[in-house]
Design a protein around this nucleic acid. Structure first.
Length: 864
RNA sequence: GCGAGAGUGGCGGAAUUGGUAGACGCGCUGGAUUUAGGUUCCAGUGUCUUGCGGCGUGAGAGUUCGAGUCUCUCCUCUCGCACCA
């Protein structure tokens, strides 16, 4: 077969993809003879189209999967759809359809796009979380957790839109107002389902230590999120009321307590409001904020004196009780003790409201100065009664002991982590499998699935199933008595917490999971955005442990190795429209001027010839800077798009889109094509193969093989550490080297050296640009599929150098280079280095103090 | 506000983990090919002096024979904060 003359990616890629599909190359099953490798990427929300972030995420996963497959492993690489969620409801309202058909058609078009990119998925395992055969198992699982006492119901706050009479997501609250109605959002308490993730807080924390394949940044963030702290729970008595318990990590500062603060929702605040209008108004004000923590924390710290006092547990002194907007009812006991002298926030608050600031901890060296702010360090106690003179460390223990002995408190471990609220008052989600009897008592479902009706009309206000009697009215399956169905649905994090396990047995209809899960799990590699560092990844880890404890699987953690990929960003062109608002223009609307070095001078809007501003931001519709992957595939082909996304940046960093640079990627693949074409006669006759040994090779051939095998070694090192941009760079260097090589000068071995170099190039490049490589492999390789053709070894003999270049420094500055035989002794190198002409020039008038020799690398002569 | 991360030529980035800063690519400059545009090929390209050399990895200090890399302080940007996914 004669190769086409021109590189035609569209043609090659569709042909190669058809071949993969026909031969089911990526369908896998359990095989105890092979080492398994489960490679997983975070599944997409089916928004309609792939964006560049998806392309990047899935290309990284595909490169890893294909590399592992070439290493000979049994690679599972599945894909599916995180198909429940808010955007489908919004789209349904806008397009006057139901969420289900909208979602289905999005899945269909995104699946086509993924297939066009040539990803090595086992499509037979595809799943969508909105399908009853998927979600029925999480309903079943939730009832198992209920039986185990890990699920409970309690009142919790939501964002309430008083005009639309509906619950809003944080995202739907803009500047404290509902995004549709514009009404001021209020906090409202409603009963909701929770899962006791706090029961697993300690294990989730401790087992982070075993996750060697996870980035430290992610582990640190999870540790801080769980937020374990050891301290004391202290009881302050309030006359005529229940005692006020507070948790503190600083019992050593307890004599510095000058007030207590409770949340607006705290019973004491509610009671005080009944006969105190100021408190009532303050509570109202506190209710009119979003529930987002970032909003609460950046808000001005405000409070009001409740006019109540509590008695200090040790001194017995009365301290005032305040109500403050920064105390969260949902965290801890909803009350805190305040020590303004030794806590920044308390200091700020006390200063503002003229509350006493009483220092009790003094720094060991130097004076205490709290005129400008709190002293938060440790020190020596004063003004602390019998504990005066103790160090903070001693006092933490002795004061806790005293409280414990006098029944005024106990030592306590506290976690910042809160239980997982899984109830959502939305339609497009998995129905929570409970019914309520006439008295409101909940009963778990016994038949699954509890199917979500999909034939609905979205009116824009609330969930349609909340008004649908055919859904709501049912019977208690245990007693046969009439019952009402729960109309809330699960948080979509619920579905995404276990999909990775279901991929192992997606066709199973008799159980949630079977023994196949234990063959594949844990996943060896997980890849997704850093934005999921805490919540999704923590919920998935939690769910894994729950599934283990219910007896479904036997591993402790879901993901062995984690890669958090960076964002895809691009230039934005914008103007400030005042009030922090910005107007964004598309690249087509703008003309950019460069100077003769290629640096940007200015950019103007074509329409009015006036300047616009430029900055680099995450690709998004609202910023008008998105690049549609499909248009790039149509223009350059999938291999070029894949190559560019791998080459432009290392996986964990953000990737800046550049239209010129992707054209460079296309140029490189054409050069590879032309290289094989140029040597087609020699390659066709030899077939691609590695050389064995260096016997008989002349010096030109040897030098070339040294280059080839050095590059191969580097590429393998970079594959292992997952730095794919330098893998591509290595392939480019190798291509340059083959293009420049003088094969005629290599004598009888020229064809073998050429064949080996091209073989290495193909193997290095195959995971990144599989279509081009598979095509060339069909042309010049064996009958086997490229992914199953194995990897190749670095020829250590080819790496042996006869001569080594030493860098010669004088006082750390480069002054000469020295080529010496590899066998040269250290002493001899020192002498040669000193006698170099340029080195002598810089040593003139100086005395040599020391000579440092780093073997095979450098000599540094220290002189003064 | 709290937690985490990142800053290297005109640009994206590399530096085998404390040892030649700028690999590879984009852009730009000059040349060749081409009727022209595009393509392709060759050469050059951190910066200042265009001699030898000096300076240079966000800013400032420190450790070291030697720092982009380690330590401290500061600045800027990015991500997350529990109902976007």
């Amino acid at each position: 077969m004669k190769m086409q003359k021109e590189y035609d990616p569209q043609n090659i890629e569709t042909q190669i993809q058809a071949g993969w599909e026909e031969n089911q190359v990526f369908a896998v099953s359990e095989d105890s003879d092979k080492e398994k490798f489960y490679c997983l990427e975070m599944f997409p929300y089916p928004s309609g189209k792939l964006h560049m972030g998806h392309v990047r995420n899935y290309t990284i996963g595909d490169v890893i999967s294909r590399y592992q497959r070439q290493l000979g492993k049994n690679v599972l690489h599945p894909m599916g759809w995180d198909a429940f969620g808010l955007p489908a409801e919004n789209a349904a309202i806008k397009n006057k359809t139901a969420p289900a058909p909208w979602t289905d058609s999005n899945i269909a078009s995104m699946r086509d796009q993924l297939k066009r990119l040539g990803f090595s998925y086992d499509w037979s395992r595809e799943l969508a979380t909105c399908k009853p055969d998927y979600y029925k198992w999480e309903q079943w699982f939730f009832t198992k957790l209920f039986e185990r006492g890990l699920v409970y119901k309690k009142e919790a706050e939501v964002n309430w839109d008083p005009v639309d009479q509906t619950v809003l997501a944080n995202e739907q609250v803009v500047d404290g107002r509902g995004w549709r109605s514009g009404a001021l959002v209020e906090k409202k308490k409603i009963p909701q389902w929770f899962i006791k993730i706090t029961d697993y807080a300690e294990e989730l924390l401790v087992s982070l230590d075993d996750l060697d394949g996870w980035p430290d940044a992610v582990k640190t963030m999870q540790r801080n999120w769980i937020g374990k702290s050891v301290g004391a729970e202290v009881e302050f008595l309030v006359e005529g009321e229940a005692p006020l318990n507070v948790f503190t990590t600083r019992p050593d500062t307890i004599f510095g307590v000058t007030y207590l603060a409770v949340a607006a929702e705290h019973p004491l605040a509610i009671k005080a409001a009944s006969d105190n209008q100021v408190v009532a108004d303050f509570r109202k004000q506190c209710a009119q904020t979003s529930t987002a923590e970032a909003d609460l924390e950046t808000m001005e710290k405000l409070g009001v004196d409740l006019g109540i006092t509590a008695s200090h547990p040790i001194s017995g002194k009365q301290v005032p009780v305040w109500c403050a907007n920064f105390v969260l009812m949902s965290y801890g006991t909803g009350a805190v003790m305040a020590v303004p002298a030794h806590d920044e926030r308390d200091f700020e608050f006390a200063t503002k409201y003229g509350i006493e600031i009483k220092p009790v901890v003094y720094p060991q060296d130097g004076d205490l100065d709290i005129s400008a702010g709190a002293y938060t360090g440790d020190g020596e106690l004063q003004n602390s009664g019998e504990f005066d003179g103790q160090s903070s460390t001693q006092a933490k223990e002795s004061i806790t002991q005293w409280l414990s002995d006098n029944a005024k408190g106990t030592q306590k471990v506290n976690y910042r982590l809160r239980d997982w609220g899984v109830s959502r008052q939305r339609y497009w989600g998995c129905p929570i499998p409970f019914t309520y009897d006439a008295d409101g008592e909940p009963s778990p479902a016994t038949e699954f699935p509890v199917t979500l009706p999909t034939d609905v009309v979205m009116d824009g206000v609330g969930s349609p199933i909340k008004k649908m009697s055919s859904f709501i009215d049912t019977v208690n399956t245990q007693t046969g008595a009439p019952a009402k169905r729960e109309t809330d649905t699960f948080d979509t994090f619920f579905e995404s917490s276990w999909y990775y396990a279901r991929y192992c047995c997606p066709d199973l209809d008799t159980a949630m999971l079977d023994e196949r899960a234990d063959y594949w799990l844990p996943a060896d590699q997980y890849i997704g955005g850093i934005e999921h560092a805490v919540m999704h990844l923590l919920y998935a880890r939690f769910f894994h442990k729950l599934m283990r404890d219910v007896g479904l699987i036997d591993s402790d953690e879901p993901f062995v190795r984690l890669l958090t990929q960076g964002m895809v960003v691009a230039n934005t062109y914008y103007r400030k429209e005042g009030e922090g608002k910005e107007e964004y223009f598309t690249p087509e609307e703008v003309s950019v001027e460069y100077d003769d070095r290629g640096s940007v001078v200015s950019a103007k809007l074509v329409a009015d010839d006036q300047p616009v501003l430029i900055k680099v931001e995450k690709m998004s519709k609202s910023k008008n800077n998105g690049v549609d992957p499909q248009s790039m595939i149509d223009k350059y082909g999938a291999d070029t798009v894949r190559l560019f996304t791998m080459f432009a940046a290392p996986p964990e960093q953000s990737l800046e889109w550049n239209d010129d640079a992707i054209a460079g990627g296309s140029r490189f693949l054409r050069r590879v094509w032309n290289l094989f074409d140029k040597h087609s006669a020699a390659l066709g006759a030899n077939r691609l193969h590695s050389m064995v040994g260096v016997d008989g090779a002349n010096s030109v051939a040897k030098a070339h093989r040294l280059t080839v095998h050095t590059i191969l070694q580097r590429a393998m090192f970079d594959y292992e550490r997952q730095q794919f941009n330098t893998v591509v760079a290595a392939a480019m260097e190798l291509t340059n080297a083959i293009e420049k090589a003088d094969f005629a000068a290599m004598g009888e071995h020229s064809d073998a050296v050429l064949s080996e170099a091209c073989y290495v190039l193909l193997k290095i490049l195959a995971p990144v640009t599989p279509h081009l490589c598979e095509h060339l492999w069909n042309e010049y390789g064996t009958d086997m599929d490229l992914v199953d053709s194995g990897w190749l070894a670095v020829d250590q003999a080819a790496l042996v150098k006869d001569e080594i270049t030493y860098v010669i420094q004088v006082n750390g500055k480069l002054r000469a280079k020295l080529d010496v035989p590899a066998s040269t002794a250290k002493e001899e190198i020192e002498v040669m280095a000193q006698s170099d002409e340029n080195v002598q020039r810089f040593l003139e008038g100086l005395t040599i103090r020391k000579i440092i020799v780093v073997p095979n690398k450098l000599v540094n002569i220290v002189a003064n």
